[in-house]
Design a binder for these strands. Structure first.
Lengths: 124, 124
DNA sequence: TGAATATATGAGCAAGTGTTCATATAATAT
DNA sequence: ATATTATATGAACACTTGCTCATATATTCA
């Protein structure tokens, strides 16, 4: 690869634009952090959990019924969302109620959804 | 699972909230479509490509230099972004210039980035 | 034409992901 | 205490993903 880069730099590269791009480029750590946030939203099950919780809190059992998925599958995904602080929960006896925790995520979700609906309309 | 759901429906489930949640729930197809969009943004390399392209178009070679990655790796990711219509390209001889294509994606990216930066500040 | 170069792509592989299954934990009820 | 029930979690497995390596394609240049 070093050879390729060297050849590239000496011949066709647009020096100014590369320098400019470097200044807007996010660093690897920020990219990883950002990727993690979008990763939370990159699975259909998690998105459906978020959409189900978008109005009211729900217990795990309710959620699994609404989604038509096993309690275990839902619980695993809730753990992931919990670890990223995207949902909060409260316990009432043995029942655990989950709710959305992060307004930023709701915004990302809403904006993505608007885009999707727009796209789906275009295709129809 | 059927048994669990049945038990659930007869005993502890909050019927009204389940019905309400069902009305806000996105269907599986929409969820998959939306997940696909967020998936495009869920990888550090692709996010860095998007950030590098956020001001100006760049050719593949420039991009690989800016990112410090192999031409092949960059090319593979560009194909993915291309297939989702997130980037557009123009050919000039054998050089191919890529640019962001979708304002919605730029918005999602910017919003996610703002959130990340906010979060990173909180941690510091 | 043939060599060089910019980009694209298929195969393969290591690492990651989402589910199921079995089981653990914790709270309630008998 | 023991049984029941709501939730959590570890292991395993199939599937996906992002890279490298080798090679193909396409354009330019000599």
């Amino acid at each position: 690869m070093a050879k390729l880069l060297a050849a590239c730099e000496e011949t066709i590269i647009h020096q100014d634009e590369v320098v400019a791009a470097r200044s807007t480029l996010i660093d690897r750590q920020t990219a990883m952090h950002l990727a993690q946030i979008f990763s939370a939203l990159s699975d259909p099950t998690r998105l459906r959990i978020i959409s189900a919780l978008s109005e009211h809190e729900l217990c795990v059992c309710d959620l699994s019924v609404v989604l038509g998925m096993s309690q275990s599958a839902v619980s695993h995904q809730l753990r992931l969302l919990r670890n990223l602080n995207l949902v909060k929960y409260r316990k009432e006896g043995r029942i655990v109620y989950y709710a959305l925790d992060d307004e930023h995520i709701r915004e990302l979700y809403d904006r993505g959804l608007a885009h999707t609906i727009h796209q789906e309309r275009m295709e129809a």
